[in-house]
Amino acid sequence: MALVEGGLTISSPAGKIAEVIEAQTTLFTAQCYELYGLPALGSLVRTGDVYGIVASAATVPLEAGRRPVALGHDVATEEAVFRENPQLGRLFRSEFSAVVVGFREGERVYQYLPALPARIHGFVYLCGDEEVRTFSRSLGFLETLLHAVVAVPPEELVSASLRQMSRKHADPDAFLIAAGKMLAHLLSDDYPRLRSILGRLR
């Protein structure tokens, strides 16, 4: 029984991890509650009914313009730096941007842009395994990702999201092949790009 319970815990949606601090139709930026509490590149996140794929992340000083100084000269480990300077956790923040790839309406998930952007201060959740599987049953989001205008190259973004998603599927290879075929259609006239994405899935 314990195992099953454990399994359930993992597959249940994780708690909120961040809050939206900037929102556009195609992109939203969220600040994590914890320093380094960042979701992995390519993870599926949700705020309200809007789904996003984590496209870039950064840890920056809370106050723009304030540069950190080196503190670790006299301590042995990186952890010790934080232990001895407990204020550091409050002086920095971890932020990430997510490309909007779809939204849900009732039970249905649509893989195109929602009518309205995400709401400021909306809580951001990291989607659980079941939710990821449900979302990735359709692969229309790949086209949105390929055309996303973000700092990270779209090839990296696409491959990262597929790597993340495939781990949640019972047959990761089958999922990757299906997604690969979809990409092959989208990139039928751009074989080098297709190859570079697929090369990043290994």
């Binding site: 092949i177 690969g180 039928s188 074989y191 080098p192 190859r195 697929l198 090369g199 290994r202």
Partner: peptide, 24 residues
């Protein structure tokens, strides 16, 4: 894409090979 002919999937790229077959 004609470029497939000049740089076909290699032995170490089984995913690429199975993806392009039937599509590209």
């Amino acid at each position: 894409d004609e470029r497939l002919a000049s740089a076909p999937p290699e032995a170490g790229e089984p995913l690429l090979a199975s993806v392009v077959s039937g599509v590209n």
